[in-house]
Amino acid sequence: MNSLVFEAPWRVYSSPYDHLRPAQDKVNVVEALQEFWQMKQARGAELKNGALVIYESVPASCPPYVCYVTLPGGSCFGSFQNCPTKAEARRSAAKIALMNSVFNEHPSRRISDDFIERAVEDARATFKGSQDAADNPNTGIGAFRFMLESNKGRTMLEFQELMTVFQLLHWNGSLKAMRERQCSRQEVVAHYSHRNLDDDMRSQMALDWIAREQEMSNIIAQELRSAEEELDQARLAGRELRFPKEKKDILMLACAQLNGVDTIS
């Protein structure tokens, strides 16, 4: 499947947030971020796993320290500053996540008919697709339109987990295998639109990489280095990190299984 479907929305509509800052440096951004999502839930937002914001500190014995934060909707952000303490790394991650959470409430971030038309037209221009391709669900652009229309009314951060699933399927080679079995793009999109990104899916992808390693020695290590570089670059730029972070975690899981370890160290 054409990678367009999984790259286009973030290539076209991801915006830099460097110009956004909390009103005062003294704001407790960790508390503010948690309160923001609790307020959204109280106002009726559908959060499958509740309003809990999850932090993950990267093990390190000395600075700079790195922390990731995963939002209830599935989006992930990381500390984008040079942090001398683990607490500062958590605040840095919370800061960029809070800015994105607030910005995501703007009407321009909600998937509407106008949004879909602009997104599809921009994607068609970027990838030099024809108008017929945009109306055909069996093309990359057509599948992109189908995914957007299936998620009308949601925001781009709410759309993130679904996009990450398809990005991972494309990266992992699963979509190519489905195409070889003559599954249409629309069938694949319809099926995986209801599939959560969970431990079972990660484990299956890790097994796929283990099988690939048996055919091509050292491919997991090479792919892991690439994923770590991509993740670091995106984190320092303040971008959304779910896709590169999931790639890294899946590859680390594959490494652990190859070494006979049950959990990621």
Rank of each mutant, 00 (worst) to 15 (best):
L251W: 00
E230Q: 08
L251R: 00
S203H: 13
A211Y: 10
I220H: 03
R235E: 02
D249R: 04
H194P: 13
L197H: 06
D200A: 06
W209G: 00
M252W: 01
A234G: 09
L231R: 06
Q233S: 13
I219L: 09
E230Y: 05
E229R: 10
L241C: 04
E229S: 11
L236P: 07
E240Y: 01
M205P: 02
I250H: 02
N196V: 08
K247G: 04
F243C: 06
E246Y: 07
D249T: 07
A237E: 13
R235D: 01
R242W: 04
M216F: 12
H194S: 14
N196L: 14
A211W: 14
E228P: 00
S217F: 14
E228M: 05
M205S: 06
L207Y: 12
A221R: 11
M252I: 08
I250S: 00
S217L: 09
E228H: 07
W209N: 01
G238I: 09
G238D: 05
H194M: 13
D249P: 02
M201L: 15
E229Q: 12
L197A: 04
I219P: 03
Y192H: 12
L251S: 00
E223T: 08
L241E: 03
D198E: 09
L207M: 13
E230F: 08
M216E: 15
D199A: 13
R202A: 04
G238C: 05
D199C: 11
P244K: 02
Q233V: 12
N196M: 08
R212V: 03
I210T: 09
M252E: 05
I220V: 13
N218K: 13
E246D: 08
A237V: 13
